[in-house]
Design a protein around this nucleic acid. Structure first.
Length: 488
RNA sequence: GGUCCCUUCGUCUAUCGAGUUAGGACGCCAGGUUUUCAACCUGGAGAGAGGGGUUCGACUCCCCUAGGGACUGCCA
């Protein structure tokens, strides 16, 4: 939905409350090749934009900022789409590719040139470098001599087009989370709008696209706060009204430093691979930098109803794995077993474990029994391997050590009792086991560990009755028989 | 170097000048429960970076210092 560039200067912002999600199609850290990842910080920015759009009834828009052609690849873009989809944040309209709008960007620059709010700068790279050093030494911003020269003096050589920013006065950003931020214009340089090859730069493209896409609220990372001032100057140069700004604090690693590889993960795909559920990520990310009183766990609907940019915290937050795990566990307990079973199968398969179709229902009835302790889907997968093993099970030494003469006798008597059990369900089996212990005149501790070991092959398993139910009567008895006949 | 942002328990945060032992959550510690690992129950320790102001009164407003961070590209 392009509104066209012809909006009158100073006209009121449309009441659409549209947002955009600024997204980097390539890695901001390593120049090339694109690392093809969607940073967790980008994901949270997207989440806040999404929450705000849903809350206000506006639109959640996606724009791929690929004005740097070299670093933008189809794969990198796909990673972004996949990441947003996994997180459950899909844009309301087709994504806009910035690179495809270069003509609009250039048209805007023509306007500025005509209005005198931009100029051609013929400085050579060497001259620029010298000026940069000098400016830094003098503690000021770069200034080009071409700013005030007449076009008639133009030499015949490549040029960039720069913004002709005001030299004095101040630019005030009324940021929704930072409050009023003031910049002295003398500290703001004439940023490049068009490169030597005529292609638009990011700062120009963002302004033009936001304006023409009808973006009213720009919610983005803290790292753009300085840019907001400079972009405001571009809006002024174009005679357009600036949008409402909201700059989110960054997410740091557990140690407070910038989030990086050594913190475990930075890409949303990695969180997926580590077994985190998207709804847990949404809840966690929402709580990171925003909150609604003491509410810790909430649904998307609640988050949407409660979300307000003004409640966003202004300090950077650290990624806390313990808390993420806790939330993930909470959502694993809430999820449909069938869905979890599917995810668990995928994990087992990726670990080269053969999973037959018939295992799905078995998994489905096992999951509710073992999910309470699972912090991630990976752990849930670990907790369910016992059910997927093939007979005869290999018993680890620890289990074999439990199988003394006495215990074997006991287990065999228990086997007979279980074989007669008609009601193969947790309550009945619990009673049966307890009754058996009584009949034997011993505590469950006398045979429980051995029974568990025989049934699970030493892998983690739920309580005894649960394990029996998970396995089913035939498989349980079979495993018992295997162990009792083996070496007997 | 310059500009800008940030600073409450270990972590995320509540408290939006005067009802507080500064609340909650995760984590942690202790105890309970117990057929593994968990889960679960009970209890506990734990914070306003430092220094100045403003005010009858400050965690809350202002200034300074310290410490973190972002930007300072013909990257985004």
């Amino acid at each position: 939905m392009l509104r066209g560039a012809a909006q009158a200067p100073g006209a009121p912002l449309p009441q659409l409350h549209e947002n955009r999600c600024p997204t980097d199609p390539s890695s901001p850290v390593s120049p090339r090749p694109p690392t093809g990842m969607m940073h967790i910080g980008t994901a949270r920015t997207a989440l806040f934009n999404w929450l705000y759009a849903r809350h206000t009834g506006g639109k959640f828009l996606l724009r791929i900022e690929d004005t740097d052609r070299e670093r933008s690849t189809a794969e990198a873009v796909q990673v972004i789409f996949d990441g947003l989809k996994w997180l459950g944040l899909e844009a309301d309209e087709a994504p806009v590719f910035q690179a495809g709008r270069a003509d609009r960007h250039r048209a805007a620059v023509d306007q500025m040139l005509a209005r005198g709010s931009a100029y051609r700068d013929y400085m050579t790279p060497e001259e620029l470098e010298a000026e940069r050093e000098l400016a830094r030494a003098e503690g000021r911003v770069i200034r080009s001599p071409w700013r005030d020269l007449s076009p008639n003096d133009a030499p015949d050589r490549p040029f960039v087009v720069r913004l002709k920013a005001p030299l004095d006065g101040e630019t005030v950003i009324d940021d929704q989370v930072k409050g009023e931020v003031r910049f002295q214009n003398q500290n703001l340089d004439d940023l490049i709008l068009l490169r030597t090859d005529g292609t638009p730069t990011y700062n120009l493209a963002v302004v033009v696209d936001d304006h023409e896409m009808g973006v009213t609220h720009v919610i983005r990372g803290d790292d753009h706060l300085n840019n907001a001032a400079r972009q405001t100057l571009i809006y002024q140069g174009l005679g357009w009204a600036a949008p409402v700004w909201a700059h989110l604090p960054l997410i740091h690693g557990p140690d407070g430093a910038k989030l990086s590889k050594r913190h475990g993960a930075q890409a949303v795909s990695e969180f997926d691979a580590m077994g985190y559920l998207p709804e847990a990520m949404r809840n966690y990310l929402a709580k990171l930098g925003w909150g609604h009183g003491d509410d810790e766990i909430f649904s998307d609907e609640q988050a949407i109803a409660w979300f307000d940019i003004k409640d966003v915290v202004s300090a950077p937050a650290r990624l806390d794995w313990d808390k993420l795990n806790h939330l993930n566990n909470h959502y694993i307990r809430l999820a449909e077993p069938a869905r979890l079973a599917g995810l668990v199968v995928d994990i087992h398969k990726s670990r080269d474990l053969k999973v037959r179709e018939a295992a799905l229902p078995v998994l489905e009835r096992t999951i509710p029994l073992v999910r309470d302790g699972a912090k991630t889907m990976l752990e849930l997968a670990d907790a369910t391997v016992f059910v997927l093993k093939h007979r005869p099970l290999e018993l680890p030494e620890k289990v074999q050590g439990l199988l003394t003469e006495e215990t074997r006798g006991r287990l065999s008597r228990l086997r007979d009792r279980l074989a007669d059990e008609a009601d193969w369900a947790v309550p009945a089996l619990e009673q049966s086991i307890r009754g058996f212990a009584e009949a034997e005149g011993v505590g469950i501790g006398k045979f429980g560990p051995a029974l568990r070991g025989v049934l699970s092959g030493g892998s983690p398993a739920p309580d005894l009755a649960g394990t029996l139910v998970s396995l089913g009567k035939d498989e349980s008895l079979g495993r018992l028989n295997d162990a009792l006949s083996d070496g007997a």
